[in-house]
Deep mutational scan, measured.
Amino acid sequence: QNEKLANELKSLLDELNVNELATGSLNTYYKRTIKISGQKAMYALKSKDFKKMSEAKYQLQKIYNEIDEA
């Protein structure tokens, strides 16, 4: 289960640069939040902690959705 979550989180991290570029014309909230979420996700992957990875995955998905809707 950890392996599956780690792969999903890696996949979301692969999209980080594209989504970060998409924040160029948006409010600074999005820029700041996506950077923080990305850092948390990288830390969670290194720690291999299921709870941290779950939270990081949720945060990344949430900010990606917010950027898409903005």
Rank of each mutant, 00 (worst) to 15 (best):
I34E: 01
K31H: 05
D14E: 11
L16W: 08
E8T: 04
T33Q: 15
K57V: 14
I34Y: 02
L9F: 01
K31C: 09
Q61Y: 05
V18W: 13
A41D: 01
A56V: 03
E15W: 14
K10P: 00
I63F: 03
K51I: 10
F50T: 06
K51M: 10
K10W: 06
L12T: 00
E15F: 14
L21W: 09
L26K: 04
L16I: 06
A22Y: 07
K57C: 06
L60W: 00
K57A: 08
E15D: 09
S47A: 07
K62V: 05
Q61S: 05
Y30F: 11
L9G: 00
S47Y: 06
K46Q: 12
T33G: 06
D68F: 15
L45H: 03
N65T: 10
K51S: 09
F50Y: 11
L12D: 00
N19G: 05
L26E: 04
N27H: 12
E66H: 05
N27K: 08
N17D: 11
Q61W: 06
E66G: 03
E20K: 12
I34M: 04
T28V: 11
L5A: 03
I67L: 06
K48R: 13
L21S: 06
Q61N: 04
L21F: 08
E20Q: 11
A6M: 12
N17E: 13
K4M: 10
T23I: 07
G24T: 13
I67Y: 03
K57M: 12
I67E: 01
K10H: 05
T33H: 10
S37W: 15
E8S: 05
E20F: 15
S11K: 14
Y30M: 07
S47L: 10
E20W: 15
V18E: 08
N65W: 12
T23M: 06
Q39S: 06
Q39W: 10
Y29M: 05
K31M: 07
Q1Y: 09
Q61L: 12
E20R: 10
S47H: 06
V18D: 09
K31F: 07
E15M: 15
L12Q: 01
A44V: 02
R32T: 12
E69D: 07
K57E: 02
I34N: 00
G24Y: 10
L5K: 01
R32F: 10
L21N: 06
N17F: 14
K31G: 06
K40S: 05
L26F: 04
S37E: 13
E69H: 13
N2K: 12
L12I: 03
E8M: 05
N19A: 10
S47D: 04
A70C: 10
Q39I: 14
M53T: 01
K57H: 05
Q59N: 08
Y64G: 02
E3T: 07
K62N: 04
L16H: 03
Q39K: 10
L16F: 10
A70I: 08
D49L: 03
K48W: 05
A6P: 02
G38M: 15
L21I: 10
E8P: 01
E20D: 07
L9Q: 00
E69R: 14
L9I: 06
L9N: 00
Q1P: 09
D49V: 03
D14T: 09
S25W: 08
E66M: 12
K4R: 11
N7T: 11
N19W: 15
Y30K: 03
E20P: 05
N65S: 10
L12R: 00
Y30P: 02
L26V: 03
M42D: 04
G24A: 14
K31Q: 12
K62G: 04
A41I: 02
L16Y: 14
A70E: 05
T33E: 13
G24E: 14
K31D: 03
Q59K: 05
M53Q: 00
L9S: 00
K10G: 03
K48L: 12
Q59S: 07
L5E: 02
Y64M: 12
E66K: 06
K35M: 11
K48Y: 08
Q61M: 11
Y43A: 15
Y43S: 13
A6V: 09
A70K: 06
D14W: 09
A22F: 09
L60V: 02
Y30C: 08
K57I: 15
A22I: 12
L60M: 03
K10L: 09
T28Y: 13
S11C: 12
L60P: 00
Y43H: 14
G24F: 07
K62F: 05
E69Y: 11
Y58T: 10
L45N: 01
S37M: 15
K52Y: 05
E20V: 15
S37A: 15
E69W: 12
S37K: 07
E69G: 07
N7V: 08
D49P: 00
D68A: 15
T28A: 14
Y30G: 02
T33R: 13
K62H: 07
K31V: 07
M53K: 00
D49N: 08
L21G: 05
K57D: 01
S37G: 04
N7D: 10
I34V: 06
S37R: 08
E15T: 07
I67R: 02
L26A: 03
A22N: 08
N7L: 12
A6T: 07
K57R: 07
I63M: 03
K46H: 11
A70T: 04
M42H: 08
S11M: 13
N27Q: 08
Q61P: 01
K57Y: 14
Y29G: 03
E55V: 10
I63S: 01
Y43E: 15
N27T: 10
K52I: 08
K40E: 07
T23F: 08
K31W: 09
Q1G: 07
L21M: 09
L5R: 01
V18Q: 12
L9E: 00
E8N: 02
K35Q: 10
I36K: 08
M42C: 06
N17R: 14
E55L: 09
F50G: 06
Y58C: 10
K48D: 07
F50Q: 06
L60G: 01
E8D: 08
Q39A: 11
I63P: 00
G38Y: 14
S47R: 04
T33P: 01
T33S: 09
T33K: 14
T23L: 08
G38R: 13
K62R: 08
K35C: 11
A41N: 01
A44M: 01
A41F: 02
S47V: 10
M53L: 03
M53V: 01
D14V: 06
N17W: 15
N65C: 12
E20S: 10
G38W: 15
Q1C: 12
D68S: 15
R32I: 14
N65Q: 11
K10A: 08
Y30R: 03
I34R: 02
K40L: 13
Y29R: 05
N65P: 01
R32N: 10
N7P: 02
D49F: 02
I36T: 06
Q39C: 13
D14N: 10
K57Q: 04
L45R: 00
D14C: 12
E3L: 09
E20L: 15
K4L: 09
K10R: 12
I36A: 09
I36C: 10
E55A: 09
I67W: 03
N7K: 12
K40G: 03
A44I: 02
D68E: 14
V18A: 13
Y29A: 04
K51P: 04
K62M: 07
Y58P: 00
N19E: 05
Y58H: 11
L13E: 00
N7H: 10
D68N: 14
I63L: 07
M53S: 00
F50C: 04
Y43F: 11
M53D: 00
K52L: 15
L26C: 08
M42W: 11
K52A: 11
